[in-house]
Design a protein around this nucleic acid. Structure first.
Length: 673
DNA sequence: GGGTTGCAAACAGAG
DNA sequence: TTTGCAACCC
């Protein structure tokens, strides 16, 4: 039988730790881990044990008697939070999994739901994901007849980006247009009008977009001191990972979450800031000490991940930045192999080379999970994906299209959304336009009626409007009424919707067999949830990668190869890293080449990619690019143009009789056999 | 008027 | 692969 002992929580003198922190960490890591009260900023270069530091701090706080529920760990993705807490569980015990963790958006959403009633918004508000938001903007754009005059008016995606920029940078719309979209200055009035209509829409439809989650939470905590106090008392210790990618709004939230005690630890690396498009500014991290007085600054500088030669290349890259960083990564690891620069005749050859290298390494006993292929844009891996399929190499892709963004999944989600929130006009619109003969106009009329109806699911009294669609509307109405009023479990509801939707799916898509399979996966996935709100919330805030779904259905014993956009690879590492399509116009992106700041950001992106590699780094590019118009010659990335053979060793692909092999130019180490 | 269909053009990055 | 626009059908 366990006995209780009385102990003051703050008194850590008598704590006997089950982990020997001092031995398992280096000095600055230990300093960070044993930091207790007040603000701290940990500047942690790539591979310096940043995650390890966070994990051990969580463990140590818990060992000191802090309740896990009083620790908040904010990370960039929920995947990162899960992995971190799992690792913390391994060094300590399952108490770690009770720590609050997730993204700013996720945590804010929880707070807003919790205090919805106090704030006077409906607690069944749903989240307007970016594709829904863009659709709403499109509707308003046509409604306001904004694009009339033949002059180029911003497209819906662009308008969405403007609004999002304004929210995240805390600037007025006109300032954003002025500085970032000068070509649309003349349309500012129309854009403002759309912005207003968009906010009105969100209010009326009981939805919040991603930015609202942050803005509304900020406003709530600013205006209601009692809520703010309650929240900050609960979060006795807050840790923020990847702080270099937070924006001013998130920084303010961080302050509010720790209001009154400032027990906040931010961890990050200004050289790895790659989210400027979301309002992050790489200089923000240096502002932290100004925001929080008496900040203790701790620097982690020793790299444990990569060989010295990989770091040499990384350091060399950073030297090219317009804004300098006082940073040079070093390691006590061995020299290692020189990073390779592979010039392939065309993209197809690049893919063949990569997949062949991967197979060779696998034959030598390396596991696929130790390798990764990185690229700038989601589409840069399409060619390679075909080749991997041909060679039957299992892979999982991060970044690019998400499960919840695929058209067929969105169709099903729309049905679920109208069940949770009947005011959600855009989802009604989606549900209705599926029906034969109903287009935007008819749908708009029906939606106007439905969103103000007493009992929208019954759709009675609507026949007058509906005439020739009556039969289809009846079966829709029957489905929704049943689902609303009968007692179904969440996965049963999803199953019914999927059954109803199946025939539409078959009519709509040529590749319906694959999509129907996805839908079945979705039904299975729904079993993990107890209520619909939660599925919708989780799918928009923590989107599953599309290929993760494919992968589950072809379960093999082998962990798959990772393909990832550089953005999605942040914080991760692999023994063997391939960086493909390293071309001028791709990395750096063609969007960035006129602007020195964006160019610096692209350079940091390249830096992030290279520092993911522990043992070997292969950078490749095709000489001949193909697109729909034909073939053209392309140039390697300007970032590697000036780097000499002593830091980046050029390889050429030589065609052999049966298969190809890469050969170093002279007598440098040959490819693994 | 409103819906459907077909062709030309553009396509980031993520919560 | 999706989106914008214009011609074409009910």
């Amino acid at each position: 039988m366990k006995k209780f002992i009385l102990k003051k929580e703050e008194d850590t003198r008598g704590v006997s730790y089950s982990i020997d922190y001092e031995k398992e960490l280096n000095d600055p890591q230990f300093e960070a881990v044993s930091h207790k009260e007040g603000p701290a900023l940990v500047i942690a270069g790539a591979g310096t044990g940043k995650t390890r530091t966070l994990i051990y701090r969580v463990a140590r706080l818990i060992e000191q008697g802090v309740a896990p529920g009083n620790i908040l760990l904010l990370t960039f993705t929920r995947r990162a939070a899960r992995e971190m807490l799992e690792r913390a569980g391994r060094v300590l015990d399952q108490r770690c999994s009770k720590v609050n963790g997730g993204t700013f958006h996720y945590y804010c959403s929880r707070l807003l739901h919790r205090y919805a009633e106090r704030m006077g918004f409906p607690e069944n508000f749903t989240i307007l994901d970016s594709s829904d938001a863009i659709e709403v903007i499109q509707l308003l754009r046509t409604e306001l007849n904004a694009a009339e005059s033949g002059k180029r008016f911003p497209r819906k995606n662009t308008i969405y980006n403007m609004l999002s920029s304004a929210a995240n940078k805390q600037l007025g719309l006109h300032e954003i247009v002025d500085s970032q979209y000068p070509q649309f200055r003349e349309h500012i009035d129309k854009i403002e009008q759309i912005a207003q209509a968009y906010s009105a829409y969100k209010k009326k439809s009981h939805v919040m977009d991603f930015d609202d989650l942050l803005v509304q939470t900020r406003d709530m905590l600013r205006q209601h001191k009692d809520i703010c106090q309650q929240v900050s008392a609960e979060n006795r210790y807050v840790m923020i990972d990847e702080y270099q990618d937070t924006n001013a709004l998130q920084a303010e939230l961080a302050g509010l979450f720790t209001w009154g005690h400032n027990n906040i630890m931010a961890v990050g690396d200004d050289a790895q800031s790659i989210y400027a498009f979301r309002g992050a500014d790489h200089k923000n991290i240096m502002e932290f000490p100004n925001l929080f007085r008496n900040t203790r600054i701790i620097k982690l500088e020793e790299n444990y991940r990569s060989t010295q030669r990989i770091l040499d290349l990384a350091n060399r890259l950073l030297e090219q930045a317009k804004d300098k960083y006082d940073k040079r990564l070093f390691t006590n690891r061995e020299e290692g192999d020189l990073p390779a620069l592979i010039k392939a005749p065309d993209e197809r050859d690049q893919s063949r080379f990569i997949s062949q290298m991967i197979l060779t390494m696998r034959e030598q006993g390396k596991e696929l999970r130790e390798m990764a292929v990185l690229f700038r844009n989601g589409r840069d891996s399409f060619e390679l994906e075909l080749e991997l399929n041909r060679k039957k190499i299992p892979f999982i892709k991060y970044g690019g299209v998400k499960f919840a963004e695929a058209a067929h999944i969105k169709d099903v989600l729309a049905h679920l959304k109208v069940l949770v929130n009947p005011a959600d006009a855009i989802s009604w619109n989606r549900v209705l336009t599926l029906l034969e003969g109903i287009g935007p106009k008819t749908a708009a009329d029906l939606v106007a009626w439905l969103t103000s109806a007493q009992n929208p699911y019954a759709m009675d009294g609507m026949q007058r409007v509906s005439g020739k669609y009556k039969k289809q509307l009846d079966s829709l109405s029957m489905l929704l009424t049943d689902l609303k009023h009968k007692d179904f479990t969440t996965s049963e509801i999803v199953e019914h919707v999927v059954n109803y939707y199946r025939s539409f799916c078959e009519k709509r898509f040529d590749d319906h067999p694959k999509r129907v399979k996805d839908l079945e996966t979705f039904v299975g996935l729904a079993q993990n949830f107890t209520d619909l709100d939660q599925i919708l919330n989780d799918l928009s805030l923590d989107p599953i990668e599309q290929s993760a779904v494919d992968f589950e259905s072809t379960v093999e014993d082998e962990a798959p190869l990772v393909l990832s956009t550089i953005h999605s690879a942040k914080g991760l590492e692999w023994s063997q890293v391939f960086l493909i399509q390293c071309l001028d116009g791709i990395l750096p992106s063609g969007y960035s080449i006129d602007d020195a700041d964006s160019l610096d950001e692209e350079l940091r992106l390249m830096y992030v990619a290279c520092t993911r590699a522990a043992d070997n780094l292969y950078i490749s590019y095709p000489v001949l690019q193909n697109n729909t118009y034909g073939e053209y010659f392309s140039n390697p990335s300007r970032f590697i143009a000036d780097i000499g053979e002593k830091e980046l060793e050029p390889w050429v692909l030589v065609e052999e009789r049966d298969d190809q092999q890469a050969l170093p130019p002279n007598d440098a180490p040959a490819l693994p056999e």
